[in-house]
Design a protein around this nucleic acid. Structure first.
Lengths: 340, 340
DNA sequence: CTGAAAGCGCTTACAG
DNA sequence: CTGAAAGCGCTTACAG
């Protein structure tokens, strides 16, 4: 059943059927009724691809994620999907499984006009390639970003949030504070490390390179890196960890060494994933507004698609230090005051 | 840049360019080379939608998920995506946020020929509607299913796995065994409840209706339902829980009542999500081969799309009882022997 | 307010 | 092995 069949049954031209569907305000009430009756009677559904082909708009956007099974990204994705669907867009999911080549492959979908725009939740590709791409197609970076890149981006200020997390430990009286970073080839890891260092330096605390270990984001690596730190001659009394998964691995390592969190070691994580409050002890951690970041990213993309000018290319979201039991402090929530 | 432009530059017809791209074996070596040179030089990418329109195949499949943020579904989804991408398909993500109407909306994408097929990870729609749909379009149910429905399905045998989980508790000597179900409008909940009852009856244990509580799958509801059970005059000594999220809520409730898992209450969960082994105590739980189920579902869908006859319409995957510390037993893994 | 006609960019059956 | 031509199902600028 196609549009011309509907037209015949309703005794109108295909153009009129199309107008009833796309621009009903251009059609007389009677004609509209007549056409709608036929459409409902035969349960006609317009052929989406034909429409896409004709209008040069797919109403599809592509979201590239480094790992869909991560509790963090799936929340962001949900925010994106929610806004997309309520704006009539569908979401193609691109899981790179942390593989840079797959990241590059998904970009082809844009060149092939399979999608009207793209949101990258991972930004490990070449800076200039991304910049060029962004000039040709609607593109938004979210969560991850690239320094000095002129592409619309939604993220938190990772440097300042890492600084605040570290300062929280300093304010509790700790001086031997370690840091487990994420993979150091990711900007997020470098920025959080920078925030940690800023806090240490501004409080005249020594940065001991043995206190800085690189993890790979997993529970296991948090566990292993913590064992290393505990084996030092002078182990740290507190640690700021790149993400909650590793922070949970850290507390496990502490327990396995017959020490206690927070009595012997204070721990701060990052992300405020669901498990961080269920975990025992519950984690003190930096919350990113995951769902909201997804929504903002999609809205930024929609603006680009519709050709609206962007007032702000960089949206910096507010983070929040959530105080759990893993540092032994009693305060409840320190909201970030900074805003850009 | 379109195909006819490439054709001009290469001094061939558009048909030949198309053949180079789609059926290179039909083109002479020299022509092929000449055309490929031009394609690379101008970086030509075929227009995906035009191709889809012409061939009546989108190379897109739709996956409908009740909740993308669930650790369980995101693993299944990853399995689907992996097979899809390596077969040249893209995945449109349909998150219903547990809303039946949104489930129905996504089905429209099939009627509008936006996708070549669909995998449903949720099956809450009308049975006959689904059966009719399955006759018209490639369709696979995975994880969830509908009794007596003649639609290709991938799942575990939930009744037998729930029976085994309950029997594990019985074998440890428990007689007062409770069960927290999932939302009872979902088949999975009803089937796991049935397995629980079968185990109790076949060991001549009384089924006390006060020992059966309905949860909503969340940590919080596991917590709340367990508090109810512990408030009974004669509380249970063991409990089989519909899923791991609720099982973690259960152990939290037990602790908050100054009791211990497994010493005072033994707990069995379901799903073997990542957290269940990190949790303390680690959970005894039923593992479903999540990733593998996703792969199988996609392969079943691909067969339907390519018109291959299906030997088996129902694929029943093996489950496995993972023994953690939450029941106090020492055995390691009881593999299910059943297979269909 | 409505219709006739063109055309979006490909692929493929047909002819040579 | 290659080309000319038709056509996939819509939408929209144009004419009336």
């Amino acid at each position: 059943m196609k549009m011309s069949d509907v037209a015949k049954l309703a005794n109108v031209s295909p153009a009129t059927v199309s107008r009833v569907l796309c621009h009903p305000e251009l059609v007389s009430k009677e004609t509209k009724q007549k056409v709608m009756d036929v459409i409902n009677e035969v349960n006609y559904k317009p052929h989406a691809v034909a429409r896409q082909f004709r209008t040069k708009a797919t109403k599809i956007i592509l979201v590239v994620v480094p790992d869909i099974t991560s509790a963090f990204f799936s929340e962001v994705l949900r925010g994106i999907e929610h806004v997309a669907v309520s704006s009539g867009y569908q979401v193609i999911l691109g899981d790179t499984e942390n593989n840079i080549e797959r990241e590059a492959e998904y970009i082809n979908l844009l060149y092939q006009k399979q999608a009207d725009g793209m949101i990258l939740l991972t930004a490990r590709l070449d800076k200039y390639k991304l910049e060029a791409l962004s000039e040709q197609y609607p593109l938004v970076l979210a969560c991850e970003y690239i320094d000095g890149l002129n592409v619309p981006t939604v993220s938190i200020d990772n440097i300042s949030s890492a600084r605040k997390a570290t300062e929280h430990l300093i304010q509790l009286g700790h001086t031997r504070i370690a840091h487990i970073t994420g993979p150091i080839n990711i900007v997020l890891s470098r920025d959080r490390l920078r925030g940690y260092k800023q806090a240490m330096i501004s409080h005249d605390l020594e940065i001991d390179s043995a206190y800085i270990q690189e993890g790979d984001q997993t529970f296991e690596s948090g566990y292993n890196q913590m064992l290393k730190l505990l084996a030092l001659e002078l182990p740290p009394t507190a640690i700021f960890v790149f993400n909650d998964d590793m922070a949970m691995g850290v507390t496990k390592a502490v327990k396995d060494c017959h020490l206690k969190v927070p009595e012997d070691i204070a721990v701060v994580g990052f992300d405020y994933i669901k498990m961080s409050s269920i975990h025992e002890p519950s984690l003190t951690t930096v919350a990113q507004p995951k769902y909201e970041m997804g929504k903002q990213a999609m809205e930024l993309l929609l603006k680009q698609i519709s050709g609206e000018p962007l007032h702000k290319k960089k949206i910096v979201m507010k983070d929040e230090l959530i105080i759990g039991e893993s540092c032994g402090s009693k305060i409840n929530v320190i909201k970030s005051l900074e805003r850009i």
